[in-house]
Design a protein around this nucleic acid. Structure first.
Lengths: 145, 145
DNA sequence: CCAAATTAGTTAGCCAGGCTAACTAATTCA
DNA sequence: TGAATTAGTTAGCCTGGCTAACTAATTTGG
């Protein structure tokens, strides 16, 4: 049982860093207030992964169905996504991004780049690479069984 | 201006990874529901940094004073921290962790380790190191001007 | 073949944790 | 000393998590 202390330290720092990074990003990102982070993330799943059912979307975003139902409700209200009952299994709902949704996602990404560019720019090339690798690791850790 | 595309890709992945990691951690961490993440984080500033004013605490946690005021209110209600008006400048309030607060923080950390250990354990040593470095970078990026 | 069990989504209601605007009280400064 | 500033609080709003309980559709088994 080596590494117990390292695991603890890394866990703590990573947790803290993630909190602070997201707080900082959200402040600036949502400042331009077109769409909140949860909706932005769900929308990007729809845009890059294509249409899917509500359940699949909830699973992809790792939230419970009621939460996703409400998020999709707001996307729909803002004309960023559509709900279409699945003709094959009429319990299901197919959810798809609208043209506007794709446009808003593009704008959101563009804006996020602007605000993040200034922050990532001072990093050295290899630091940036490390962050990219770390992102992949974090995703893996988050999605582990 | 090279690297524009890299910055964008890294920003996006990092954002997404941070969201998913925190969601996963919070689910398991708050499951044992002793204290929420924002309060845990503020409490740890008090424990490791010592007592400070509300304003300083808000700045350290990168939130606005009203937000911190409410968080401290809950910490106080749960007997995890105390508010003591500063005798020197009676507009200010000194906030300190209680003995119970320190104990709860220890328990919270211990629990987080348990749940995270299983997730970090499969990582190779150098992957863990990379995460540690990345955490530091993220903190720097989050706190940049 | 129909009744029971299962599955997909929704609704209602709770909570945490962000924010701004507007206020009080204390201090500083002209 | 009176005005401006500063620290914190209060009120009210929003997003985004959850569970419990419901409806409607489908599957399953007697």
């Amino acid at each position: 049982m080596p590494r117990r202390t390292s695991d603890e330290i890394v866990a703590d720092r990573l947790h803290s860093a993630a909190i602070h990074l997201l707080r900082c990003l959200r402040r600036q990102d949502v400042e331009a207030m077109e769409i909140g982070p949860a909706r932005l993330s769900a929308l990007s799943v729809l845009v890059f992964g294509g249409p899917c059912t509500l359940g699949q979307l909830a699973a992809a975003e790792q939230v419970k169905p009621p939460t996703m139902s409400r998020l999709v409700g707001k996307l729909e209200r803002d004309l960023l996504a559509t709900r279409v009952p699945d003709p094959a299994d009429r319990r299901s709902v197919r959810i798809a991004a609208t043209r506007l949704g794709r446009a808003v996602l593009r704008r959101g990404r563009a804006r996020r780049i602007q605000t993040l560019a200034a922050r990532l720019a001072p990093l050295k090339r290899d630091e940036l690479d490390r962050l990219a690798e770390a992102a992949e690791l974090m995703e893996r850790v988050a999605r582990a069984p």
